[in-house]
Amino acid sequence: MRDIHPDVRAALGMTRELRHRIAEVRERAEEIVARRPSPSGLVIPELDVMGRLRDLYLAPGTCARFGNQELAAEIMAAITESTQDARRQYGIAMNDTDMLPRPMSEVMREWRAGSGPDQPVPNFGKAEQST
């Protein structure tokens, strides 16, 4: 049986690492939830990062206090504000430099510069993990 060529092993490792990185990004995005109150503070929607309404809190007496148009305006104002907040949170979470993994090209460059046929497949962890 033949051994797998080191470049193929590296490519398989890169593929596996890319899948893990995509899963991490999805998990970070799914954790984002925004809850911004309406101007009166009586309506609080809960939205996810995709702008989907997950929950809606109406303080007791809210429906009696507002007419139909006013209540709809309160709900829409809170949803709009929550959507903007979720987008802000997403931008912050996805651009956090502490969460960025080590570039694959850098790892591959270092691996190729190394010598020896028995050199292990590159480690795609963060810089502090690979040393």
Rank of each mutant, 00 (worst) to 15 (best):
T80M: 08
L42E: 15
G13M: 03
Q89K: 09
R28Q: 05
N68W: 06
G41F: 13
G61F: 06
A11D: 13
L47E: 01
M50Q: 08
L58D: 03
D48W: 01
I92W: 05
P120I: 00
T62W: 06
T83D: 06
E81N: 04
L56A: 11
S82F: 06
D118M: 06
E81D: 15
P37M: 08
M50H: 12
L47D: 01
G91I: 03
I44S: 04
T80L: 11
T62I: 10
M99T: 09
L100F: 02
A11W: 01
P6G: 09
E70M: 09
C63M: 14
D3R: 12
D7H: 11
M14T: 13
D3Q: 12
I22H: 02
M50R: 11
I75M: 13
T131M: 06
A78L: 12
A23Q: 08
G125P: 03
R54K: 15
I92M: 06
V107L: 02
E46W: 00
L56W: 14
V43M: 11
A86H: 01
A11P: 11
R19M: 11
P101T: 06
E17V: 01
P37V: 14
I79R: 14
T80V: 15
D55M: 02
M99I: 07
D7Y: 12
I44F: 05
R28W: 01
E46P: 00
R102T: 10
R26W: 04
R26Y: 03
E70F: 00
V25F: 02
I4D: 07
I44R: 05
R112I: 00
E128R: 10
I22E: 08
I44G: 02
E24A: 10
N123P: 01
R112V: 01
I92T: 12
Y57Q: 13
E30I: 00
M94L: 10
G116N: 06
R9A: 14
V25L: 15
A10S: 07
E27D: 15
G125H: 04
A23F: 00
D96P: 04
